[in-house]
Simulated scan of single mutants.
Amino acid sequence: MSERPDFDPSTLVIHSNRSYEMQSNSILFPIHQTATYIHESVGVTKGYGYSRGANPTVNALEQAIAAIENTATALCFRSGMSAIHTLCMAILKAGDHVILSDVIYGGTMRLFHQVLGNFGIEYSYVDTSSAGPAEAAIKPNTRLIFLESPANPTLKISDIRGVSEVAHKHENILVAVDNTFLTPLLQDCLALGADVSMLSTTKYIDGHNATIGGSLATNDEKLVERLRLVRKTIGSIQTPFDSWLALQGIKTLPARLDVHCSHAKQIAAWLEAHPRVAKVNYPGLDSFPQKALAASQQKDFGGMLSFELDASTEDSLRFMNALKLCTCAESLGSVETLATNPATASHCDLTREAREALGISDRLIRLSVGLEAPKDLIADFEQAFAVVFGSKA
Rank of each mutant, 00 (worst) to 15 (best):
I267E: 00
A295Q: 11
S197L: 15
P283W: 03
D242L: 07
T218Q: 10
L223N: 07
T202M: 14
K279N: 12
P283E: 05
A217Y: 02
Q298T: 10
G302C: 05
M198N: 09
A295L: 06
K232S: 12
I267Q: 03
T252Q: 14
P254E: 00
V196D: 02
A255Y: 10
L229K: 15
K265M: 06
G249E: 03
Q298R: 07
T202K: 13
G302N: 01
H274S: 09
P289T: 12
T233S: 12
G302L: 01
I267D: 05
S287G: 13
K299R: 15
R256L: 04
L247C: 04
G207S: 11
L245V: 15
K222D: 15
R231P: 06
P283T: 04
H274V: 05
A194I: 04
I205T: 10
T252Y: 13
D242C: 11
I250H: 08
S215I: 08
T211I: 14
G303F: 04
L199I: 13
D220K: 14
Q187R: 15
K265T: 05
V230S: 10
L253D: 02
T201N: 08
Q187G: 07
H260M: 06
A210V: 11
I267G: 03
L229P: 02
A194D: 04
W244Y: 10
Y204N: 11
N209C: 10
T201A: 08
G249Y: 03
H260I: 03
L229E: 14
D188Y: 07
T202A: 14
D220G: 11
A278L: 15
V230E: 07
V230L: 12
A210H: 14
A246S: 06
G303N: 06
G235K: 13
P254Q: 09
A278D: 13
S243H: 02
A278T: 07
L199T: 08
D286C: 09
P275W: 11
L199W: 00
N281H: 14
F301H: 14
R276V: 00
K222L: 14
A217F: 07
L245N: 13
S262M: 05
V196R: 02
A194T: 06
Q187L: 06
A269P: 00
V277E: 02
R276Q: 14
T211M: 05
C189L: 10
D242K: 11
I250V: 12
G213F: 01
L285Y: 04
G214P: 08
S215H: 05
D206K: 06
R226V: 10
A295K: 11
A278R: 15
G214K: 01
L199P: 01
A255C: 08
K203M: 13
P240F: 01
K265A: 07
P289I: 06
L227V: 07
I237W: 00
H263F: 02
S200R: 14
E272G: 01
S200L: 11
A268I: 00
K299P: 03
A217M: 03
L245S: 13
Q248W: 10
R256F: 02
S236K: 05
Q290C: 01
L271P: 04
D242S: 13
T201G: 08
V259Q: 11
Q298E: 11
V224Y: 09
H263K: 02
D188L: 06
A191F: 04
D195T: 08
Q248K: 14
A292L: 12
L271E: 03
A278S: 15
